[in-house]
Every structure is written in structure tokens, then in C-alpha cells.
Design a protein around this nucleic acid. Structure first.
Lengths: 223, 223
DNA sequence: ATTTCGCTTAATATTAACTTAATATACGCT
DNA sequence: AGCGTATATTAAGTTAATATTAAGCGAAAT
């Protein structure tokens, strides 16, 4: 899952980035409205967190343009007071949620998860699929109760595959959703991660068909 | 665990702060209602002790606003007479407990622990996990009966990890829960404490995997 | 006033995660 | 079958996160 954070207070921004990366999202950031719109032109985000008080380009204008570029992206508006929230609602600009500053990071986290889960097959915080148990709060994946210790990137990839297990995920999609802007599109890095993942999964489950390869198409999770 | 004390008699306040810090809580204080609300806007407390007789902003108003800002915070109301207590109950403002002045500090201490323990896995005053024994009354942690001598901060960190041992705790969360307002969010202090803790634990247990690092995610207690 | 102790700061070292790159294997196609 | 392309495997290199160490500071204790 890929998220764009638009916020001009860089200290706040850094805190959010760190927190959300831990949840396995690929994060890009923009410090002003113009670069936010630019990034949305280049990339496809699943969600944008947009502080409405921005330099260079009025926040409401940014919202309009981002929505025009991508009808399905989820947008969370952050504003300093509730009246702005009401004004945006009134304008019907298609924001999906609102947060009034100041707010707790856990609150933001919960709202992001709530918005993104609608895209998934079904999404409680803990899901059990056959012998697998995925706890999105704890970043923990177990097989028959046995914990599979994964790195951040491995966890990101595997949960993406799991949450979209009814589809075959192309490597392009995986790269798009699990990496941010800085990712090299020709990199083989993903394959190495898939390899490491399979190795750990094989160790825990004694099975080697959990991540299936569909040649020329992509990967899929086979529980 | 992080607590806000709201009380205008500064002598009383200081006594509470001292006593509760000894119990390993991170304490912030406010002398009037306005600054209490302000602090609640900025920080996420686990518990607020609120004296209802306050200058600047009526105590009941403070209670309302604090509750609006954070639905899950525990609130203990301190008042001079029981009728106020009944009035608040009648208004259904979501206080979790009441104390009538004058009261014994030990009474306050016990009620705080009682309210906070509901968040934990299960929380008697003494818990035994494998060879570890944690006595929250005495602030003593032993391994196979052998006492591990810890400083206050070490004790605070370790008990937080122990009481949330089913989760991986990020350094942000640890900082939020074990330090108060004055903590520098970019400080490396926590790492130094973790190091000291590990050293003492290693000495006592001969094991060096008791506090596990999950890189990019956080720490966890592994009994 | 001096010492001790707990906490923090800051500089440096170490380690694990991630990426790169080179080589090997597997698969589908004619 | 044999060729070409896609993917797997391995090892080595780079980067970012965390660990370690020593020094400094201030509050409490002697």
C-alpha cells in the first residue's frame, strides 16, 4: 500500500513517516501543494494525507486536483479547525475522512487502516487463513502458532500478497505498492526478498508452494 | 504509562509527583484547567487525575473536553465533597473513579494501578513469568529468586515491555509511555537504557535474548 | 563542599536489512 | 530438443538502524 503525506511541518512529517513505515506502507512526502500534485501525476497512491494549510498552492485546490487525477484514491484531510472541515464537506470535494489538529498518531493510523481495508478482501486487524495467522497490529505472522520472524520489507510484501490473495500480483504492482519513489524499477531487489520469504516460510511450514510463481504474470499467496 | 496530574495546590502536587514517579509513571502536571486541556491536546495520557476545584476553567468543563479529546483515557476525579461526585455521575461525563479529599496517597496509588491494569494482559501486583518475578509494589524484579537491581528508568522500561509482552513495542511508543513532556523525541537516551538493562539482565540470567530487537519495528520482552 | 548516582548527550562501532550484480536454473515456445 | 526469456539463487556491497562507549551534567546523599 502506498501513501503520500502532504505536510509542511517537517518534524511532524518525519514522525508520521517513521510510524507508518513500520506499518509496512510505502511512503512518499510533499512539503507543499505544488509538489503534492506533481507526485500524484507521476505515481498512483492508495491514500493521501493532506494538511489543508499549505504554502504555494491552496489546500482545497490541491484536493480538487488530486481527486481529478485519481478518482479512487482515499484522501484524509488534516486541518487546524473544524470549520474548514465543514467547508470542504460542503463543497463536496470527495475527501474520505477528516482529522482536526492536534490528533494522536494512533488515531491517524486507525483511520488509514479503516479506509484502506475497504479495498481488501475483508480486513479485520487479525486474520486467520488456514494455519496462517496475520496480526496487523503486532506485525506478526504465525503458522500453527509458530512465529515467523520477518523483516519489515518481507512483512510488507507478504501481507500485500495475503490481502490480495484472490489475485495474481505482478512484480510491477508489488514494486509499486511496497516501494516508494526511490525504488529502481529495474531492480532485482524484490526477487531477493521473495526468495528470503520463501525460505523462512519453508522453514516454518515445510511447504514450498506458499508463494506461487505464475510465469510472465506474477506471484500469488496460496494458503 | 503516562499520567497527567491537575491540581492547584502546588505543595500537594509535588508530593504526588514524587510518589508516582517512584512507581515508574511518566508524570506531567497542570495547575489550572486551561493548561490541563492544552496538555491533553498535545499528549496522549493513559490517566488523568483531575481536581475539580480549579481556577480559570471549571473542572467539569475540563473533564468534558479531556474526554472529548481522548475517549480511552482513564480519569480520576478529586473533589472536596461527595455531592460533586454525584453531580458528575448524574451528568454521565465518563469519569472512571472518584476520590474525596482528604485522602491518603496510598489510596490514590492503589486506584491508579487498578484503573491502569485493565489495559494489561492481566495484572496482579506480583507477576511471575517463567523464571522472572515482578513485584510492582516493591519495584523488584528477580530471576530465579535472584534480585536484579534496576534504576527507576530501567524499571519503567522493563515493566512496560513485560506488561505488553505479546506485542512488539516501537521506540516511539516506549518514549511516549515512559517519558514525560521534557523528553527529546530524537534522543538516543532510550537506547542507552536498553543497553544497561540488557547488561544487568545478562548478568543475572546468562541470557542475552531477553529483550529482543526487531529492526525497524521495535523491542519485545522474551521471557 | 564533595562525592555518588542516575540520566542524557554525543561520537563511534557494529550489525542487520536491503540492494546490486553476477551466475544458475526453470519454463515455454517453435 | 534447443533457444530465449523469466525467474531463482548466491555472494558481495551499501545503507540505515541500533549498540556501544565515554564523557558531562545536575540532583540527591554524605
Amino acid at each position: 500500500m502506498r501513501i503520500l503525506l502532504v505536510e509542511d511541518e517537517s518534524q511532524l512529517l518525519n514522525a508520521y513517516v517513521k510510524g507508518l513505515k513500520q506499518d509496512g506502507y510505502a511512503i512518499d512526502t510533499a512539503g507543499d501543494g505544488a509538489s503534492a500534485v506533481e507526485l500524484c501525476e507521476i505515481n498512483t497512491y492508495d491514500l493521501v494525507v493532506l494538511d489543508i494549510n499549505l504554502p504555494k498552492l491552496n489546500g482545497i485546490e490541491v484536493l480538487k486536483q488530486v481527486r481529478t487525477l485519481n478518482k479512487s484514491v482515499k484522501i484524509i484531510i488534516v486541518s487546524a479547525n473544524r470549520s474548514i472541515e465543514q467547508r470542504i464537506e460542503g463543497l463536496d470535494l470527495g475527501a474520505n475522512d477528516y482529522l482536526t489538529k492536534p490528533f494522536d498518531f494512533q488515531e491517524l493510523r486507525a483511520r488509514i487502516r479503516a479506509l484502506l481495508r475497504r479495498d481488501f478482501i475483508s480486513q479485520p486487524k487479525v486474520l486467520t487463513i488456514n494455519d496462517f495467522n496475520i496480526d496487523l497490529n503486532l506485525h506478526q505472522i504465525t503458522y500453527q502458532g509458530k512465529m515467523i520472524l520477518l523483516t519489515l520489507k518481507e512483512y510488507t510484501i507478504l501481507t500485500y500478497l495475503i490481502q490480495n490473495r484472490e489475485r495474481i500480483i505482478s512484480s510491477e504492482e508489488l514494486l509499486e505498492k511496497c516501494w516508494n519513489d526511490e525504488a529502481d524499477p529495474f531492480s532485482e531487489a524484490m526477487r531477493v526478498h521473495i526468495y528470503a520469504l520463501r525460505k523462512k516460510i519453508q522453514e516454518a511450514t515445510q511447504r514450498d508452494d506458499v508463494i506461487q510463481t505464475v510465469k510472465g504474470v506474477g506471484y500469488r499467496f496460496n494458503p
